[in-house]
Design a protein around this nucleic acid. Structure first.
Lengths: 132, 132
DNA sequence: TTATAAATGTTATATTATTACATAACGTTA
DNA sequence: TAACGTTATGTAATAATATAACATTTATAA
């Protein structure tokens, strides 16, 4: 189970926005959306984003510089993330596949280095876009 | 085997720099380094980087906004990349593991979406940093 | 309660990346 | 080799993403 975090005011505003949108949001799009709620500066957004990423409520889609709400609410998966990204419509969804996460969490390479964290991004065309 | 690409002047200058450095380089660090060779503007750098990424001579480390020369010279792996990143010293190396790449290249999730490309970044502490 | 950490507010600035437009070099093939 | 399309280059301006520095306030917990 995930620890219950009491989000601060800004964190809550920003998390709710991202969560409701259901898709990746960019920092300045977030900023634009929350200005009416009194969050005026980029730094306020980035600080909340940093914290939300840290506690696993959202993830950063690195290849897109965007942030999406965690879709695996019940598991401690913020250090082991995998996403499916459609290169046409830019739809992103979090992959929740226990075989995959087990495989990657236990992965060791020749260096003997053990990994505490990973991020995987898959790219392709989603069903809709493929059939166009 | 990888197709032999004839790099243009700027592409060659920039590839050689990244390749010799042996570690990830950021675009503006590259720019600074090649100014004496007549490459003066960010766009010149980004254009060369785009092309080099496209043909698989370099890869972008998304979580670091940096570019590293491909270390798997003999294989067509630019659409299936995996990296090991030390969070302390920021050392990055490309993982070349056929089991891993086979596993990921064949991965399918519930959506039935088939992936043409992936990028995986592992994080942890390298041996040196772990023993400090 | 008091002190410590976490969050906020604000301004300025750093870093990363692209748009727009003009020109030049290269490769093909007629 | 001339004409064409494609790829690469040059240059200026600007957009988009992210952080530094500093002052203040709020929450947590000893």
């Amino acid at each position: 189970m995930q620890k219950e975090h009491n989000l601060s005011k800004n964190q809550k505003i920003i998390f709710d926005l991202i969560d409701k949108s259901g898709e990746p949001m960019k920092a300045y799009a977030i900023l634009f959306n929350v200005q009416k709620k009194g969050i005026k500066a980029p730094l306020q957004v980035y600080r909340a984003l940093d914290k939300l990423v840290e506690i696993g409520k959202i993830h950063k889609i690195e290849s897109r510089n965007a942030f999406i709400a965690c879709q695996n609410s019940s598991c401690q998966i913020s250090k082991a993330t995998a996403f499916s990204i459609c290169e046409s419509c830019e739809n992103v969804s979090e992959i929740s596949n226990s075989k995959l996460s087990k495989y990657l969490s236990n992965f060791e390479d020749d260096s003997g280095m053990r990994y505490s964290k990973y991020n995987l991004e898959f790219f392709g065309l989603c069903k809709k876009c493929k059939s166009k």
